[in-house]
Design a protein around this nucleic acid. Structure first.
Lengths: 126, 126
DNA sequence: ATAAGAAACAATAACCATTATCATTATTAT
DNA sequence: ATAATAATGATAATGGTTATTGTTTCTTAT
């Protein structure tokens, strides 16, 4: 594996993700970072998102549509609104309780999970 | 919505999915159904998988790679082995407990979830 | 401060899974 | 049996993502 070098573009992507709680797509990130780096390419955005994900500095959320990214890595879950498709954070009292529960009936070793909840968000429920 | 008409191809796809517990991809399904219908096209497989999913007769499982399909619709969860990438069933004692737990800290309405557990399956653990 | 080596870049082509189009065939209602 | 219409097979198109290439920028050692 190559030694990691600093890059302003990667820094900017990370900073943007950390400032947000709406889990933007690669495209949204691209459009934003472009304001600071007008000739950054979409490929660079994807490359750095993969890199940051591998490093564990961000989280990739795989949904039905395009992947979405989260700059906050503390264990938590997500909720997708069936109406407006916004992706929101859900904080469980005990994130790992889920794993222990499932482990009871499963012969292999469970070391993690990703949950996506569905429903109607409070804004749409009005 | 158009009135549904019977099709032998759709029937065959459904039958195949119900006979299996390994959650095949569209491509695997295509390769199998082809034995019965040598000139079925991949488009037909995809079209019917979408249709069956909308009808609630099968479940589409969105993962990192290609979508996978499950002919068994009783509520249950899935496990993806980090080593061999096989996708296995996990049966929780109470599937909806997860929703109630999350609902406690969430302002919107949660009406469902999809969980994907990660770890090492019993075969790979040996 | 400069030069060498390596990593990151921008641009763009390639890839893969999935969806759309369209002329033909199968199913269903009359 | 006929007409209406949905499903099919073949294939083109799309969208998201990854790979390639040549160039630039960063780091480190001189």
């Amino acid at each position: 594996m190559p030694a990691l070098k600093y890059s302003r573009q990667r820094e900017s992507i990370k900073r943007f993700l950390m400032s947000r709680y709406d889990h933007p797509t690669a495209d949204t990130i691209y459009l934003h970072v472009r304001e600071e780096f007008p000739n950054i390419s979409l490929g660079t955005v994807y490359r750095n998102l993969s890199l940051l994900t591998e490093l564990g500095e961000i989280i990739k959320i795989t949904t039905d549509g395009p992947d979405r990214f989260d700059g906050h890595v503390e264990p938590h879950s997500h909720f997708l609104c069936r109406k407006c498709h916004s992706l929101l954070d859900v904080h469980l009292d005990d994130e790992s309780a889920i794993d222990r529960q499932a482990q009871k009936n499963f012969p292999g070793v469970i070391d993690g999970h990703s949950v996506l909840y569905y429903g109607i968000c409070s804004d749409c429920a009005k």
